[in-house]
Design a binder for these strands. Structure first.
Lengths: 180, 180
DNA sequence: GACATTATACCGAACGAACGGTACAGTCCG
DNA sequence: CGGACTGTACCGTTCGTTCGGTATAATGTC
């Protein structure tokens, strides 16, 4: 099987255990592949596995978030679609965000540039929607950051409280908050 | 020297490298203590070290945040004092939050209860201020959660963008946002 | 069609290094 | 003296990684 087959398993594993916590033993178990086979698909080892996951995430972001935001129509609807998609990936707040995990773990230095690029693209796309609905450039950029803050913060809090409702509430409020 | 002496070094180390990433070798180097000495002060090993740090954080939260919030005076001033204190611990957004790190790493299960208690106490204290300024109980609780979301989210984003300004802006806006 | 070659996918076993942790013989100091 | 503390050497385990090799299927060659 091609290596892309195993990326979803890897994503789920890194989300659950973090970079250091996702040992080759666990990865082997989760993918059903022996350690040696993992090195056939990912010669660069763990690091390449994460890179593959980030590639996958880039693609997902492009196909879901950025696309939902950039298509024509009512700005609030477009933002709402983004929130719907986010609810899916984060399982309504029960699953943590990989980019935050990579940022806070010991792997920070290794993947920081990739994660930064993801955040920038995301915030930029949100800001673009707001600009199109008449908000000035600077405010739009700040609101884009506010959106990222609300999403990441509510995910953290949902994890911390062991209760997904902060995320759900944040997603519910976000579209109108941004266009306020 | 008493073991409390080394807690600040431990805090800084766990913030930098996470739980898994903070190896005994690094801990030994950071504290200037040999392994034997570390195990003399912390017989429970790494786990006890984190517990000590969490005790320290509990105390800090009590002496700084909770105290600043509970003392009499103008609600907005009290919230402003909290934000000032937060700016100090997080070095104006340049340092990550340990509780978030413990939540997202592989140590989640081990320390989740302690972290949960911290968040609950914190949010409760903020809500209390809002209640005292005439906001109804439910809204106050939600706003308390919003505060936690803004803090945690802006810290993540500051890390992700490699730029502390989202945190600084969030801290600047927070007091009036909560009393809006 | 028959045969050699190559590419892809996979695995068992083992590697050295580093891990968290311990045993013990001191050394310091009241 | 006696207890707090520490340096050194070491334990078993697990880490990420690599080696040597097999099975299968596709591809090329005559």
């Amino acid at each position: 099987m091609p290596k892309e087959t195993y990326v979803p398993s890897l994503l789920s594993l890194f989300r659950q255990h973090g970079y250091d916590g996702a040992t080759l033993a666990k990865i082997s178990e989760a993918t059903g592949l022996g350690k040696a086979s993992l090195y056939h698909h990912f010669p660069g080892g763990k690091e390449e596995m994460v890179v593959s996951v980030l590639d996958y995430l880039d693609h997902w972001l492009d196909q879901n978030i950025l696309q939902a935001l950039s298509q024509p129509g009512d700005p609030q609807d477009r933002l709402q679609r983004m929130c719907d998609r986010l609810g899916e990936v984060y399982d309504d707040g029960r699953q943590p965000c990989l980019s935050a995990i990579l940022l806070l773990g010991s792997a920070r230095n290794v993947f920081h540039d990739r994660v930064q690029a993801i955040y920038q693209a995301w915030i930029g796309a949100i800001a673009q929607v707001l600009v199109e609905s008449g908000i000035d450039e600077n405010t739009a950029q700040q609101r884009g950051e506010d959106a990222a803050i609300a999403i990441q913060g509510s995910l953290i809090l949902a994890q911390g409280l062991g209760n997904p409702s902060p995320f759900q509430r944040a997603m519910q409020q976000l579209p109108q908050e941004l266009l306020r």
